[in-house]
């Protein structure tokens, strides 16, 4: 069996005595996109942070991109993971172009690609605008530009369509298909399953930190 991009086996995460994620089994193959749904507080964001190796499991075993989530080597796999979270990770006092150029230099990517990526997400004319002066939608596009620049093998999108107009929403589809085309995988969280249904092959629902049994809830 080919190596899965995500392979969780009985994984749990506890914060103190409080279980946040419980007994998760999840396997996502290369080229696959999965929709992650669930009510507020069901553990979706925690699961994304676990998959991004930013949290270690407290129970069970699991790995992403062939590296154990418990191994010290998980740090090395991080540059292959792209996470777009609730809060934009832009530096407010830097322009959009400076933000991306900073990312490129830290990641060792040629800065020449920055302009092209900004054009691709529709921010070419706003490249000299500080992130603090950008609308939420523009900041979100800036995040998409960053992920386009870093070309991750595992894409994690939290609240993929939040605050996006129809045109920007097309960028979500573009990002997901691009990572699938590279043989990677994507996990897309949304409160609007209907919007991501055309992008994903299947849905996984979280209920109180555990994966709901198939058939217990329809997207």
């Amino acid at each position: 069996m080919p190596e899965a991009v995500i392979d969780l086996r009985a994984v749990g995460v506890r914060l103190g005595d409080t279980p946040i994620l419980r007994n998760l089994y999840l396997r996502v193959e290369a080229g696959e996109a999965v929709g992650l749904i669930g009510a507020n507080g069901s553990g979706k964001t925690t699961l994304l942070r676990l998959l991004a190796t930013l949290l270690a499991p407290t129970d069970g075993e699991g790995g992403v991109l062939g590296v154990s989530l418990r191994a010290a080597g998980r740090f090395a796999v991080r540059p292959r993971i792209g996470l777009i979270g609730h809060t934009p990770a832009l530096y407010p006092q830097l322009t959009l172009e400076e933000n991306l150029a900073f990312v490129a230099r830290i990641a060792g990517i040629p800065s020449a690609a920055v302009g092209e990526v900004l054009d691709r997400v529709g921010l070419g004319l706003a490249r000299h605008r500080r992130a603090a002066a950008c609308s939420h939608g523009m900041q979100r596009r800036g995040e998409f530009a960053r992920v386009t620049l870093t070309r991750p093998d595992l894409l994690l999108l939290d609240e993929a369509h939040a605050g996006l107009d129809a045109q920007a929403a097309d960028l979500v589809a573009y990002l997901v298909r691009e990572v699938q085309g590279r043989g990677g995988a994507a996990v897309v969280v949304s409160h609007e399953p209907g919007r991501i249904a055309p992008l994903v092959g299947r849905f996984v629902e979280l209920q109180a930190g555990a994966i709901a049994e198939p058939g217990t809830a329809a997207p």
């Binding site: 930013l54 740090f75 090395a76 991080r78 996470l83 809060t87 990770a89 990312v103 830290i106």
Partner: peptide, 14 residues
């Protein structure tokens, strides 16, 4: 650096 920026820097391999 807020939490989002800290996560970003980690994921960039800093």
């Amino acid at each position: 650096d807020g939490p989002a920026q800290m996560d970003l820097l980690s994921l960039l391999g800093l």
